[in-house]
Amino acid sequence: MTAIAIRDELARWPASLKIGATFFLLIVVTGLFAPWLTPYDPYTQDLAGFLQPPSWRHPFGTDHVGRDVLTRVLHGIRIDLQIGFITTYVPMTYGLLLGALSGYLGGWFDTLMMRLLDVAVAFPFLVLIIVIIAILGPGVHTIYIAVFLLAWTMYARLARAEMLVERGKDYVLAARTLGYPTSRVVFRHAMPNVINSSIVFSMADFVLNILLVSSLSFLGLGVPPPLPEWGAMVAEGRDFIFDAWWISTLPGLAIVVTGASLSLIGDGLAHRLGQRQRSFL
């Protein structure tokens, strides 16, 4: 890509995509440099200076064991984005593959996939996750396993539905009349035309997954303390909400800002990719 090509591409971005991408980039950079941005350690307790309100020394205040909330929020970026990324894009990868194959091949494979999918979505998501956590014990890995079992279904459905449309188009037929192997027809020709809606949805899914992990942490089923996960921090602060509003509110705000920037990206991508506007949230 030349500089001109990049400039042309940027010119086509809608405002929501530019704003969302800028915010998200800022968040990512902040997360990368978190250890150097504040003089404090996210785990060191300072029992002499607990529940301090926001000040110049502690812009986000301190929590009930005297840890600097800003430092913990900044370190939380790493944890929450990592969890959000893995819980979104790992299931998306195989959800897309299975869904696209299902839609293209049809027949018994499609029937099998769709029944499997029905079984997976028949369970209430949170209940199933709580059951899996009850069996395997809380922790990030348990959340991954639970999400991997279920989250692919939405992508499989999207990819299958799009593939049913795509496979009837002339260019797919043309690829078949030219004698290309089925794998090439599906993955090289049809697939790139199938993934747009999934990419747009993945932005919303990313937000939902961060919220899910935060919710589970809030319930005590997610990330174990003392890891500075945002949801866990909100949960820790709830006993002090009337005396020290900052412990819960400011990590909560971090979730909101991250979620909003991802939603803006999703919205902008939907426009840029020529999709009709979708609202999943």
Binding site: D170, Y171, A174, T177, N193
Partner: peptide, 19 residues
């Protein structure tokens, strides 16, 4: 199909992969 018999279609606009 690939080497001995080939086919062209009615609508060239949709016969090529847009990506």
């Amino acid at each position: 199909r690939g080497t001995a018999i080939a086919m062209i279609f009615q609508n060239p606009m949709s016969g090529l992969n847009p990506v």
